[in-house]
Design a protein around this nucleic acid. Sequence first.
DNA 1: TAGATTGATACCTTTAAGGTATTATTCAGG
DNA 2: CCTGAATAATACCTTAAAGGTATCAATCTA
Lengths: 304, 304
Amino acid sequence: MDLRKLKYFEAVAEEKHIGRAAKLLHISQPPLTRQIHQLEEELDVVLFNRTPKGMELTDAGELFRQEVKNIFALIDQATERTQKAGRGELGRLDIATFGSGILDSIPQVLLAFKKAYPEVSIVLHQMDKGEQIKALRQKRISLGFNRILSPLPDIRSELVTTEALLLAVNTSDSMANMTHVPFDSLRDKPLILYPTSNRPSFVDKIYRLCQLSGFSPVVSQEVGDAVTAVALVASGFGSCIVPESATVLSLPGVIYKPFINAPDESSVDLSCIYRKGDNSPLLKAFLKIVIHYRMQNSKQVVTR
Amino acid sequence: MDLRKLKYFEAVAEEKHIGRAAKLLHISQPPLTRQIHQLEEELDVVLFNRTPKGMELTDAGELFRQEVKNIFALIDQATERTQKAGRGELGRLDIATFGSGILDSIPQVLLAFKKAYPEVSIVLHQMDKGEQIKALRQKRISLGFNRILSPLPDIRSELVTTEALLLAVNTSDSMANMTHVPFDSLRDKPLILYPTSNRPSFVDKIYRLCQLSGFSPVVSQEVGDAVTAVALVASGFGSCIVPESATVLSLPGVIYKPFINAPDESSVDLSCIYRKGDNSPLLKAFLKIVIHYRMQNSKQVVTR
DNA sequence: TAGATTGATACCTTTAAGGTATTATTCAGG
DNA sequence: CCTGAATAATACCTTAAAGGTATCAATCTA
């Protein structure tokens, strides 16, 4: 079977005339006659009745014509879909997020991507950093969102946004009516912290900042994610340090305060990580959106 | 696009290795490399990632592989269906029957055909002879069942069965307890007859038989079809002459009597008619069943 | 570092599709 | 009844494209 023959068949079926069909196909009549004969021989079916006026489809030919139409439609569809997939406009993207990272920035990036590439289905997975790296290597995911990174030979990363750290305090706290909180006022204040999972972690960062300010934090409670932490702040368990994006959690009894006199690097990055060799167009498309988001975001910061 | 390329693509996708795939396809490696490159160029999509270990499908390639599988399945299906249609095993057959002809023989033939060619859908149309011939010429039907035929240049016919003529009489009739009815006893007996639609007709035949016996029939009533006629016999309107197959109508008050001393040709043919030039495999298949039916039927008559 | 294995490239051979000239057949019109 | 026009079919040649052989560049492995 040969698509050329099918195309030729379609033309003859349409024109009911070998000569005219040949002209339409920009070939001469004899080769077309031959191709039609070969097709009939291959199928072992008479597709046309030859009359002195031209070619007339048999019932079997009529049926075959429909089938051929479907075949070409399917081929066109296959081509189109494959090309879309090749441009990263169609497919499935498995993305990992960490516990409370799914606040503010990540949804915004995902939304922007969804808008630009509506035919890509995004599947989200909850994973901590260690799991993300494992899943990346096993190709179970193509992307992971993370905060604190250590360089790895087979993993690349792209910065999404940089967020200031804020202190979430209870409204009954003595610091509640300050506009800015000096970082070292955290000395002796009970802090809600997170367990250290995979180093380097967000907790490590907080410990280092305290160390730079010359004290060790007093841990009142360890919780798994920022949402729980803020909830505990609301009920008076203590304060906690959160990235700026956590302010979307507006719980009664909680207010967020910026630091003053904080050591350098009192901000935290949000990055996405991916396999080094991955040249999938889906990944490229996503990174393009990430970079666009970062640009737009930093511009906003500048113009503020 | 070219099915050869798709076949080659499938092989490489399966083997993940150009060399092995080439061996499987019984060609050498370089042309296969070239074909894959051409396919990628034509689609403008990278289908494989080349590694030192072999070829690895990209996401787009993976999708294309599915599509290609569907394409080949559709082509196979198209081929199969067309071949069936070419052998008359698939399709639609429009058949005309006349009023009461749809008794006994015709259903048996249709049933036999349905059994032998289950994938052919038969569409029945009620038409008298004149309409049948018109519909045949306009190709609205491919076959018509009929009794009395006049030869036409563009219409062929095939005998289905020959039936004796019987007299349907009311049980109260004086002839009811005869085993055989002399034909000329119909003289002066009221007969239920049919209107003459297209000559030569069944009525013409009856008139001729009467004429040969030396009398003219007394018409008590004209009715459109044999079923109505027999119903009138049941209620005492008179007698009527019917083909043997009408005996399947067993109405209370009606008994069927064979003739004796009837003129020659006191039997009537059931034939099917079709276009002279029609070489459709569906028609051929149907005629084969018709001839088979006739053979089997005449054998039964002989062995009786 | 040497050898083996991968896909890619260069160049020639062979197959099959396309072109030109012609034929057989059928139908329409004189 | 014959002639001419139109149809698809056939014979034979030309051309384009697929296939084969030899070889290369790159990468991993021992």
